[in-house]
Structure formats: structure tokens, C-alpha cells
Design a protein around this nucleic acid. Sequence first.
DNA 1: CTGGGGAGGGGGCCC
DNA 2: AGGGCCCCCTCCCCA
Length: 552
Amino acid sequence: MANCMVFHTQIASIMEVLANAAVAEICKLVDNDYAVLRLEITQSQKENTALRRKLQLLELKVSRERVLGSLPSSVKILDRNRGMAGGEGHLTGGHRSFAKPAGRNTWRDDQPITVDEGSGTSTKNIIVIESADAEAAGPGVKLEKSEGEEDPRHSRNIQTGAVGAPPIATDDSTTAPAPPSTRCSITEVSGTPNAVLKSETATETLTVTQRLLYTGSDHGSDPERLGQLGCPPSPGSEYFPVFHQSQRTVNSCGDGDTLGPSGDDLSCSYTTEMDSGNMPLGLETQTETDLSRGDWNRYSSSVYSEGCLDKKREVIVVDEVTVKVDGDVPLTWNADKTHLGEGHSQGRDFLDYRESLETNPNVATHSPLHAFRDRDPVSTSMGPSDSHSRVLFDQVLNSKDQRAKAQGGGATSGNSKEKRFLCMFCNKGFSCLQKVEIHQRVHTGVKPFSCTQCHMRFAQAGNLKIHQRVHTGVKPFSCTQCHMHFSHSSSLKRHQRIHAGEKSYSCSQCENRFSHQNQLKMHLKVHMEKGCSRVRTAGRGFQRGATSGYTS
DNA sequence: CTGGGGAGGGGGCCC
DNA sequence: AGGGCCCCCTCCCCA
């Protein structure tokens, strides 16, 4: 019996031990599962957080695209304009006035969109379309920069307006530059309730000068715009040069029954019209700034890079005297003569003149033009009553005297053949006043002699007379050795070189000789192409070598 | 090669 | 005699 009791006791203890072990095992299993469960829960929570963040990012993207899609029309216009780098397109109409060349705008297309994710709050967009480069660069400074050119200023974080938040950390989805089409920086700041489009185009601080300079627009036709820009037209300025034909006013005798100034019936209309499209109108403000800086060529190129100007009111009456006084701007500074449609490049004149301006500040002149200035310094509303223009004019006149001295000629020597009449634009000397007046038409674009049978206009009466042989068919120059007739004496002379076997144009790179200059020119092109092809071949070989080296 | 325009220079005529 | 004006010639350039 006692043994039985002991046996039961032992069984009980064993059972207890087993139970304890089972409980411990169970507890252990539960603990393990719990840990796993917690781990899984934690991971799920993390995934959930990540998904939530992704959702936020997607929302941000959607909102940004929505905002960009609703950019104001002016922004789009500017965007398009930027695409017209280098005057690719000619703006027309009213938009032209707000066009700016490539590189002027600081559309920060390469500036990252900054997203303050860390804040965890809803972020909104502020699009800052900056035009501050114009201010930073200062007036008259032309920032020519190609589309892909890296503006070092883009590396710094300039934000304007109320956007005080500096660009912060960027998310991987937003580190990429803004879409090129936006050309704006988007800075996200916290707490802004609504997306704000801030376009500074409406409050651009470009000066009127810069606008004129870079648009070439006819502000004269729209003086209100100037007023809107806070730059009212200068008192009395009409944004349109109106000169008066003094002494030799012969207006519109285009019907052909009136004699020209020389007495010959040139069937000309001596209306002193400016050549169409040549006349940069309403530029007095511009010249007060840019030209005074010696930016003649810059001015001209920029003006004409925008194409022809408004041709309205192109018929003007010219006072060839006051044009020198009042036209403190050359009326047709044309670095690109293709816009003039005819003539040779005069841009060198501008460059030369600019150089002379920059290097020859204060030397008195004895030019008759100087006398013009002294005689009637403010004969029109566009006169240099403003001191700046006056200084400019003095610079113009002084510079040419300086050049005359540099050329070794004194303007006051007694030689009658001396070229003491100097062009106020390019300093070129002429023997008499009329010569320089005619010459200055190169700069001013004045072409007083119009053909009545076509729309051609000429700066010289003789050229009109020759031109009219086109209509009359008169070819007064006959070759004595063949049946050929020519309307130009130079053509006959050129032709006769063929009969004479004269080959006065020789190639500098070979022994070939030619009777015509054009032949030589074409021949030289062959030399050029040969040289270029050699260069190209060498370049291809280099590329191949480089490629092979890379792949091997 | 030719046609034709742009532009400068020379020289004659007139005042 | 000298200057201004005008015509013409010439050269250059481009189409």
C-alpha cells in the first residue's frame, strides 16, 4: 500500500514536471510567434508608411503637372520666344514687344524641384519665373547664351518674391530637372494653402531700353506699352523719327513728270523714304543707353535679329542736316545687311565706330557736322536735349576727329582735296559735304530715289538711272568684238577681259587664273572643301580609334 | 558669264 | 579761287 502511495506521488510529480515543461514549451512557442507577429506587424507598418509616402509623392506630381499645365498665357509666349534662339523666328504683332532672346530669361529649367518631404505636411507649389537676370546683368548688358549653355547662376539658389524657403532636400522622384517645357523653378514651401503662380513677367524690371534692344519692336506704335512699363516716353518723343527735308525738299514726284533734284527726269519719287524694314523706329531711348555704351553693333544686330519692323509710316521727310543732330542714333545700323535686302555689310562700320567711341573720348572736332550740332542742337523733339544724348553726340563727333588725326590728316589743313568731311557714323572722310551725305545714307537707310516702275529705291540718283535701263531695255555699252550689249559699263569691261584673254584673278593656292572674280571665288571654295574633307576624314579616323579603344 | 545693285571717287559746271 | 552740286565712271559684290 505504501508502495502504491509512493508510486502515485512519483507519477504526480512526473506529471507536474511534464506539465510544466509543456507549459514552458507552449509559452516559448507563443513568445516566438508573438515576436514573429510583431516583426511582421512592424514590417507591415513600415510598408504602409512607405506606400503612404509614395502616395503623397504621386499627389505632388499630379498637382505640379496640373499647375504647370495651367501656366498663364504670357508664360507660354515667353517660353516659345525662348525657343527662338538667335532670332529663329520673327515675332509679329504685339507679342513681339515682349519677346526676349534666348538667354535673357532665367527660366530655371535645370533647377530641381525641391520637395520638403521631411515636414510631412502638405506642400504646395510656388512657381517663380524669374526675370532677374536682366537686372543682375545691368542695362545694356546682353547675355547671349545658347539654349544648352549652363548658366553658372543656376547653381545658386535664387528665389524671389515671397518664397523664402531655400531649396531643401530633394526626393528621388523630383531630383530630375523640371520638364524643359516649363522653364521655371518650382519651389515648394509649407503652409501655403494654394498653388500660386508667380510670374514676374508682369513686373519685369527690364528697362525700356532693354526691351527695345532685344525686341526691335516698334514701340513707337505703342507708346502706351512704355507707359505700362513705367518708362513713359521721353517728353516730346514720338518714337518715330520725323526729319524735315530742308533746302532740297522735293516730295513725291513719283509720277515721273517732275524733274529730280539734278534736273534729270529720273522718274523718281524723291520722297526720301526709308528703306522698308530698315528703319529702327522709336529708338531714342534705346540709344541713350546702349549706344552711349558703344553698343552700336549690338544694338543693330539685336534690332535686326528680330526681323523687319513695323513698316507703317515708313515715309518720312528727311532733314539731312537735322538728321545728324537729332538722329543721335544711326537710323539703320545694320550689322546684318540681309535685313536691308541690299548693300554690303556695314556692320564693320559700327564696330569701327564703336571702337573709336570707346577709345577716343574727348577730342574736339572740326567736322562740319559738329557745326551742325552747334547750330541747331535741338531742332526736333528727338534732339539731344538730354545731356546723355548730348554726351553721346559729342563722343560721336569727337571720335571721328580722333580717327582723322590717327589717319595722319588734319581737318584744318588747306588742301582742298582733303577729306575733311567725316561721316559721323564711321569716321570715313569725304572731300565734300554731299559725298558724306550720300555716304551716310548707307547708315541711315535713306533712299531718296524711287523707281516709278518698280519698288526699287536708291540712295544715289545715278544708280536709279542705271537701274531704269532694266525697264527701258537700253544697253548702251556694246562690245566691239562681238554682238554683246550691256547696260553696265563695268559689265562690258568685264566682258572684254574675256576677249583679251586677260585672267587677272589668280588663285593663291595653285596656279589657276581666272578672268572673273566669281570664278576665282568658286575655285577657292574647292580648295576650302578639300581642306575641310581632309579635316573631316581625320576626325572620323580619330573617332574610330577612340571607339575601338573603348570597346577593346 | 551675265545681270544688276551698292557705294566711292573724279571731274565738270555753277555760284 | 573755292565750294557745292551733279553726273558719270568704276569697283565690288551677289544672284
